Amino acid sequence: MSDIVYLDSHFVPKEQAKISVFDRGFLFADAVYEVTAVIDGQLIDFNGHFQRLQRSCKELGLSLPITKELLVDVHHELIEKNNLHEGLIYLQITRGADSSRFFDFPSSSVPSTIVAFVQHSTVVNHPNAKKGISVISVEDIRWQRCDIKTVALLAACLAKHHAHQQGADDAILIKDGYITEGSSSNFFIVNRDNEIITRPLSQDILPGITRQAIIQLAQEEGLKITERRFTLDEAKKAKEAFISSATTLIWPVISIDNEDINQGAVGHLSQRLRDIYLDKALKK
């Protein structure tokens, strides 16, 4: 059976999900998106994702054309119609389709385009969560509003593609000598004093929903966590490193630029945080 896609108030087979060539998401990347994990048929951290969606729309002056309650219903119906036990739901909202390609925003009468679809994938028992991943460092060439979750992801695609060409699993981004985040994730290190360190929120990084959950969990567990900038050299000398996102939850990083972290072994603290996160997420 074909997957079912939500498109502008209708549920249709994915082959029938079509948008206009004049849609501003297609022409200008004038769109925002969210990705929510699904485990055991449950939405994970949906409230946080919706709040960030509201913020992204506000920052772009983009009307949010759907209520939280209706969006929850859409997600649940996608889970049911696609028999999604574990995976992801991708949501995208664009400024809609005008009949031309003008840079100015269209009039308010132009309806937004809303698309949502499922991705069947392994979230809980993904092999990378157990074995860890290798990353390489690349220059952060993204635009200056990385705090808004837009679909302008070409720089991230280039970073990931370059990493894969070099035989690595992913890339971490460097700006002005400091690590900002992963190509599609937030980035953490653990120093020799077991202090968990991640970059503070600013326009340079995405306010990750999983990132915030990790910070809260660490505080609840009495672990020391600090938000500050850190260099690539400090990361390479760290006791542990890991990435976080809705897609990965927490994946340990065991190599940066072909230099082993923790002698190439998955660290205890990153694995502990992942276990705690999963335990609490599934009890909500």
Rank of each mutant, 00 (worst) to 15 (best):
V190W: 01
N191P: 10
N191R: 11
R192T: 01
R192E: 11
R192G: 08
R192S: 11
D193H: 10
D193W: 11
E195Y: 13
E195C: 13
I196V: 05
I196S: 12
I196K: 13
I196D: 14
T198N: 13
T198K: 08
R199N: 03
R199P: 15
P200W: 01
S202N: 02
S202W: 12
S202Q: 02
Q203F: 07
Q203L: 15
D204Y: 06
D204V: 08
I205T: 09
L206S: 07
P207I: 02
P207G: 15
I209E: 04
I209Q: 02
I209K: 00
T210C: 03
R211G: 04
Q212R: 09
A213N: 04
A213I: 02
I214K: 05
I214L: 04
I215V: 14
I215Q: 01
Q216P: 00
Q216W: 02
L217T: 09
A218H: 10
E221G: 01
G222F: 03
L223E: 12
L223K: 02
K224W: 06
I225K: 03
I225N: 11
T226H: 09
E227M: 11
R228E: 10
R229Q: 15
R229D: 14
F230Q: 02
F230Y: 10
T231D: 08
L232P: 00
D233M: 10
E234N: 06
E234F: 07
A235Q: 02
A235P: 04
K236C: 06
K236T: 06
K236L: 12
K239N: 04
K239V: 04
K239Q: 15
E240I: 08
A241C: 07
I243G: 00
S244C: 13
S244D: 12
S245G: 11
A246F: 03
A246L: 01
T247S: 04
T247H: 01
T247G: 15
T247D: 07
T248E: 09
T248C: 01
I250R: 00
W251G: 08
W251S: 11
P252K: 01
I254F: 00
I254Y: 00
S255E: 07
I256A: 04
I256T: 13
I256M: 05
D257F: 11
N258C: 10
N258S: 05
E259I: 10
D260P: 05
D260L: 08
D260E: 08
D260Y: 05
I261C: 04
N262L: 13
N262S: 07
Q263N: 05
Q263H: 14
Q263I: 03
A265R: 03
A265V: 10
G267A: 12
G267P: 01
G267Q: 06
L269R: 05
L269I: 06
Q271G: 08
L273D: 00
L273N: 00
R274Q: 14
D275Q: 02
I276L: 15
I276T: 04
I276Y: 06
I276W: 14
I276D: 15
L278R: 01
L278E: 09
D279V: 05
K280R: 14
A281W: 05
L282Y: 11
K283G: 07
K283M: 08
K284N: 13
